[in-house]
Design a protein around this nucleic acid. Structure first.
Lengths: 137, 137
DNA sequence: GCGGCCGTTTACGTTAACGTAAGCTTTGGC
DNA sequence: GCCAAAGCTTACGTTAACGTAAACGGCCGC
C-alpha cells in the first residue's frame, strides 16, 4: 500500500507553520517530498520528519542540529570507529538535554514562586478592600 | 557592605562567552553595570541576571523572552488587573515549559534507543571477528 | 468563462545575536 | 619609561530562519 499522503497546506496547518517554512526546509534539504506534476506530495515519513524538526526547534536546536539528530537513527554507521563516534555524540547530546531539563525545572520553580506571590497579593488586596476577613472577631 | 564585584572578563570566562556578548546585552538594556571611570563593574545581581539570561538561551528563548521572564520577579505589578494578567502569563509559560520538557524526554528516549543499537552492533561485530562467543558449545 | 483558491518559482527583505576589525585609553609589571 | 594585556567605542559584516512580494499555472464551482 502507498500510505497516506499530505499536501503542503495540510502539513502547514497541522503544525501551525506557513507553507513558506516547509518549502524553506526543502531548500535546505531537510525534507524531499515527492511530486505529482508540479505539486509537492508528502508521505507519512516526511510528515514525521517535519514533526521531529519542529520538536527540535522548540527546545532551541538549529535546523542543522535537528537533522543531525534525526539522521542518527538511520544506520550509515558501518564500522566500529563510526559507531564509537556516534556513541560519544549521543553522550554529549544527552548531557545537554539533561542540562536543559534542569534549566526548565528551575524555571518552573520560579513560575510557582511568582504565581504564589501574585495570588497572595491578590488575596491581600481583596481582603483589604472588598470582603472583610470572616475570621475576625 | 558593597558585595563582590566582577570585571567583564571575569564574567565572560566564568560563563564561557565573549566580552562582546556581555557588552551586547548591555546595548540591549539587559544589564546595566556600574562604571568605575570607564570600566564596567558588575555586581552580584548583574552576574545573576546574566546567568539567568544564558539559562533562558539554553532552552531556546530569545533575549527578550529572557528579560520578560526575569522581570516577572520584580513587582511592578500594582493593581489586580496586572496581577491577573501576570498569572495568565505564568500559565502560558508553564505550558510551554512542560511541552519542552516532554520534548526533551522523548529525545532522551531516542538517544537511549540509538545507543542500544550502537552497542548491539559493536558487540555483534566484535563477536564475529575477534572474540568467539564463550557460550558456544 | 471567470473569479477564487491552491500551488509553484524567483528574488529581495528582515530580525536576532552576535563576530570582527580598527583605533584609542588605561594599567600593572619589569 | 615602556610594552603588553585588558578595556573602551564605533561601525560594518555575518548567519539562520524565515517573511513578503511579484508573477504565473491549474482547477472548480457557478
Amino acid at each position: 500500500m502507498t500510505g497516506k499522503t499530505y499536501s503542503i497546506s495540510d502539513l502547514a496547518s497541522e503544525f501551525g507553520v506557513t507553507t513558506r517554512t516547509i518549502r524553506f526546509y526543502e531548500e535546505k534539504g531537510l525534507v524531499v517530498p515527492l511530486r505529482q506534476g508540479q505539486k509537492r506530495l508528502y508521505s507519512g515519513a516526511d510528515r514525521v520528519r517535519i514533526k521531529l524538526i519542529l520538536r527540535g526547534k522548540r527546545i532551541g536546536m538549529t535546523l542543522q542540529e535537528c537533522v543531525d539528530f534525526i539522521d542518527m537513527y538511520d544506520p550509515e554507521h558501518n564500522n566500529a570507529e563510526q559507531l564509537q563516534a556516534l556513541i560519544e555524540d549521543v553522550k554529549g547530546r544527552r548531557e545537554r538535554l539533561l542540562q536543559q531539563k534542569k534549566d526548565i525545572d528551575d524555571m518552573l520553580a520560579g513560575l510557582d514562586e511568582v504565581q504564589a506571590l501574585c495570588e497572595a497579593s491578590l488575596a491581600d488586596s481583596r481582603g483589604r478592600t472588598a470582603t472583610p476577613d470572616p475570621r475576625k472577631p
